[in-house]
């Protein structure tokens, strides 16, 4: 026994969960809603999804290759970004728009700030907002294959009545991945079971938004209205899949609840008082910017430390 053994500081064991398994789980959880998007909107939706995912992964690969950085495309994070971006685009989006969005998300929002873990905004959402500002007409054109008319949220805002059951199932107008509340919830349930996300952000978000809508929505205690607000637009997709993005949400448990409440209030303001019927995307990227501040004031009190005595002596 003269040959030396491996040594390192403890601990000597690791859990099975890695960045790769987490990102893969998120991608899996998005699939039911994405598949429903293809069913709802047809082949054009599939082309958008494939384009965004491929362009995102490729952008990451090329950027890292050119800069001589380690290639990280196998961690599935670019796949998730591409998938999320596609789900946030209307099925009528042309291929060039998918390409611009993907490159913007990966290169500008993610890589220029230092890559995975360093971006301060959700890349997919930042790209969506970039496209929304740059190509407003195309980004809000939900007319496909004869299915025309406004999104349920726009109809709701205009004071028309909406079919909540259809909204829950998702056979309505909207972006590719946002329409089906039920398939998004199935995906979210998978993430809860796999312990990828906690209830804190989505529940605080939805609860705060619901309260805001009840108070300021102008419909009083109208359950139909509330359900339509919750299932409509990007709220389900945003609350469970984008507000919960690790990189751009607070790391402290209390901060996550604060973050969710801020999101709920902002979404309420944007939807009810804003010009557009939608508000989730802007609420999330705006709240992303508040994360450092939220974390600063929500650092937990350590075990055994009494607040009034302050520092451990």
């Amino acid at each position: 026994m003269s040959n030396l053994l491996n040594v390192s500081a403890s601990p000597h064991v690791r859990s099975q969960v890695t960045t790769r398994t987490i990102m893969r789980d998120v991608a899996i959880a998005l699939l039911p809603a994405a598949a429903f998007g293809v069913f709802n909107f047809g082949m054009k939706a599939l082309i958008t999804i494939v384009t965004c995912v491929a362009a995102s992964v490729l952008s990451e690969y090329i950027y890292e290759k050119l800069l001589g950085k380690p290639i990280t495309t196998s961690d599935y994070s670019a796949v998730v970004t591409g998938l999320l971006l596609a789900m946030n685009l209307p099925s009528s989006a042309p291929v060039w728009m998918s390409l611009i969005g993907s490159v913007f998300a990966i290169i500008v929002v993610k890589q220029l700030f230092g890559g995975l873990g360093q971006n301060f905004m959700n890349p997919a959402l930042a790209a969506r907002c970039f496209l929304l500002i740059s190509f407003t007409g195309r980004m809000t054109d939900f007319a496909v294959d004869g299915m025309t008319g406004p999104t349920p949220l726009a109809a709701l805002k205009a004071g028309e009545s909406v079919d909540v059951a259809k909204m829950f199932l998702g056979t309505t107008q909207g972006t590719i991945g946002e329409t089906s509340a039920v398939f998004l919830l199935i995906g979210a349930a998978y993430l809860f079971v796999r312990k990828v996300i906690s209830f804190r952000i989505p529940c605080a978000y939805l609860a705060a938004f619901a309260v805001f809508a009840l108070i300021f929505g102008g419909r009083g205690f109208d359950m139909n209205y509330l359900a339509a607000q919750l299932f409509g637009g990007g709220l389900m997709l945003g609350a469970f899949f984008m507000a919960t993005d690790y990189v751009t949400s607070p790391i402290t448990p209390m901060g996550q609840i604060v973050f969710g409440v801020v999101l709920g209030i902002l979404t309420g303001i944007f939807r009810i008082f804003g010009g557009s019927a939608e508000g989730v995307s802007y609420a999330i990227i705006f709240s992303n910017l508040l994360v450092p501040l939220i974390e600063k004031v929500t650092i937990p009190t350590p075990f055994g430390i009494r607040k009034e005595t302050g520092h451990a002596k």
Partner: peptide, 20 residues
Amino acid sequence: TACIRCGRCVEACPSKLVPQ
């Protein structure tokens, strides 16, 4: 690899610290 700020360390810490 890069920290993804998932917060698992915060949840796991028995001393309620913020290891990240």
